[in-house]
Amino acid sequence: MATNGQLPEELLRIPQPPAAKNWVRLWASITFALLLLGLYEALIGAPTEATMGIYQRIFYFHVPAAMIGFLSFFINFLASIWYLLKRSPRADALAIATAEVGLAFLSINLTTGPIWAKPVWGIWWTWDARLTLTLIIWVMYVSYIVLRQFTPSAELQPRLSAALGIFIFAAVPIDYMAIRWWRTQHPAPVILGGKNSGLDPHMYFAVLCCEIAFLALMATLVRFRYEQEIVKHWLEARRRGVLLTQGELGVTDQGPGIRS
C-alpha cells in the first residue's frame, strides 16, 4: 500500500482506540469476575436481614454505587484543578471520563434507592437530606455534560468544563449545609437506626465485594473513556494539520494528545 517508504511508520504511530488494546481484555475479565462474585455474595451469600427482609439486598449495589460515584466526581475535581494549572489535554480527558462514569454510578444509586424505598418505606421518594443532596449533585454533573455538548469548539470545551467542575465542587459543601438546615425544619421520615448497627460480618463481606467490584469497574470504564478522549484529541489536532497541509500526512505531526 505504501510506496514512499515514510508512510508505514506514520501509520504505525496513529493511536489505537482502546477497544483494540490488550489491557482491555484483562481488565474487563477481572472486573467481570469481581462483579459476578459481588452479585453472588449480595444475592445468595449474605444472610437475609431480619427486619427489611429480602429488600435489604438492594443495598449491596445501592451503597457502593454512591461511594464509587462520589469518588469519581472527586477525581473529576482534582483533574479540573490539574487542567487549570497545566492546561494538559490529559487532565481534560480524565475529567470528562470521571464525570461520565460518576454519573452512571450515581444514576444507579438514584434508581435503586426508590426501588428499595417503595417496599420498605411505602413511598418512592422523600426529600430527605441525603437523597436531596445526591440528586442535586447528579443534576450538577448532568449540566457539566450538557455544557460540553453545547460548546462546539473543541478548544473551548476543556477550559470551560474545568471552570464548571470547580464551581460544582465548591457548591457541594454549601448544598450540604443548606439541605441539612432545610430538612431539620421539616422533619423527614425516620429511616434507620445507626447505619452500621449490628452488621453481620458476612453482610460486611458482601458490601466489600461489591465495593471492590465497582471500583474495578470504575477504573476500567474511566481508563477506556480516557483513552478514547486522548485519541479524539489526537484526531482533532491531526484534522487541523491535514486541513493545513491539504491531505499530506506527517507534516505537522504532534503526537497523541497534544493540541496545536
Binding site: 452479585l39 444475592l43 438492594i58 444507579i108 434508581t111 426501588i115 428499595w116
Partner: peptide, 16 residues
C-alpha cells in the same frame, strides 16, 4: 423489587 433494582443497575451500565 430486588430483581428490578439489580436489573436497572446492570441496564445503566449496559447503556453506558
Amino acid at each position: 423489587y430486588v430483581v428490578a433494582a439489580y436489573g436497572v443497575a446492570w441496564a445503566i451500565h449496559m447503556i453506558y
